[in-house]
């Protein structure tokens, strides 16, 4: 990448680096992970949060390459747009991409596919993830979870220690003070790292807009065959979701606010076809981002339970 000599462009006007506190904090965290751990990995889902993480990692180590690989836990239920996007990005960055598939965990008999109309592979990812961490001896897994997403995540640390079984002991977390991040762990333990802990959904979108970061097309309004279930809009364009006969398919103008597993991610009605319109829509929105996550609706403590077991 070319270095822009800002000083020359602006005719010797003094250029002072303005601080974006959230960006600066995230970059600081990335540099701590790279320095404190032997084998970090960035968990990459192809969603906007992990794409934002990639940009922040680029900034943290420029002009050097991102010093760790990306890991995608593939549920097999991805939006095709996300996979195409992932492969293009990895090529541009010149970083290593590791893909581990939930289907393999199912074939090996480690997890059992859920049945029925709400069947989802979202929960099954945990086993595949933990196996992948063990296979590559990763001691730090960097994720794009944010504290504003969900109230169990609001209690999450930036360096969150997991035991040999990947479990989160939420009542016994290390205190985190100032910028002194304690990454010391025992053999077998690993750490989940959340550089954008303090960002809100709107912060992420504003950043994508300001940085002109490319994101998968499903985040923008598009025509899609959908049906209604439990007051939410489901995609009917694939065989992943088991649709009942009385659930009528109609083409609607929709977009996705999160890009999880297709079986647990609902769409929202939208005509936001550009990043500016998306930011405006989020600003005016009265529904939280995870309001469209079917996996969270299972119970009030759904996320806390999944996290205890080693979920992202």
């Amino acid at each position: 990448m070319e270095v822009i000599e800002k000083t020359e462009i602006k005719n010797k006007e003094r250029q002072i680096l303005e601080v974006n506190a959230l960006e600066s904090e995230a970059i600081y965290i990335f540099r701590e992970v790279a320095s404190q751990f032997e084998r970090p990995v960035l968990l990459f889902s192809g969603g906007k949060d992990s794409i934002t993480l990639v940009r922040l990692a680029q900034k943290a180590f420029f002009p050097a390459k991102i010093p760790f690989p990306l890991l995608h836990i593939d549920t097999g239920h991805n939006f095709p747009e996300t996979i195409a996007f992932r492969d293009k990005l990895v090529k541009e960055l010149g970083v290593e991409l590791i893909v581990r598939k939930v289907q393999d965990s199912i074939d090996q008999g480690k997890v059992i596919e859920e049945k029925g109309k709400y069947a989802s592979r979202n929960g099954l990812q945990t086993t595949t993830l933990l196996d992948a961490l063990e296979e590559f001896k990763f001691d730090a897994a960097i994720g794009g979870a944010r504290r504003d997403e969900e109230k169990a995540r609001a209690k999450e640390r930036i360096f969150s220690v997991r035991d040999d079984f990947g479990q989160w002991d939420e009542k016994n977390q290390r205190p985190e003070l100032f910028d002194h991040l304690n990454g010391k762990i025992e053999l077998g333990q690993n750490v989940r790292v959340f550089p954008i802990s303090n960002w809100t959904e709107l912060d992420v979108w504003n950043y994508i807009k300001k940085e002109q970061i490319e994101i998968p097309s499903i985040y923008f309004a598009h025509k899609r065959k959908t049906f209604f279930r439990d007051g939410m809009i489901w995609s009917a364009e694939d065989s992943v979701v088991h649709r009942e006969d009385d659930e009528i398919v109609e083409e609607r103008m929709v977009r996705f606010r999160t890009v999880g597993d297709m079986s647990c991610t609902a769409a929202v009605l939208s005509d936001a076809t550009t990043i500016e319109k998306v930011v405006q829509e989020i600003r005016n929105s009265k529904i939280s981002e995870r309001g469209a996550r079917i996996d969270d609706k299972r119970s009030e403590a759904a996320m806390e339970k999944r996290k205890q077991q080693g979920y992202f």
Partner: peptide, 15 residues
């Protein structure tokens, strides 16, 4: 440096 840009000065809090 901040990413691919050069600056004359950096303020408190910048990475």
């Amino acid at each position: 440096f901040f990413f691919d840009q050069k600056f004359d000065a950096a303020g408190r809090g910048s990475s």
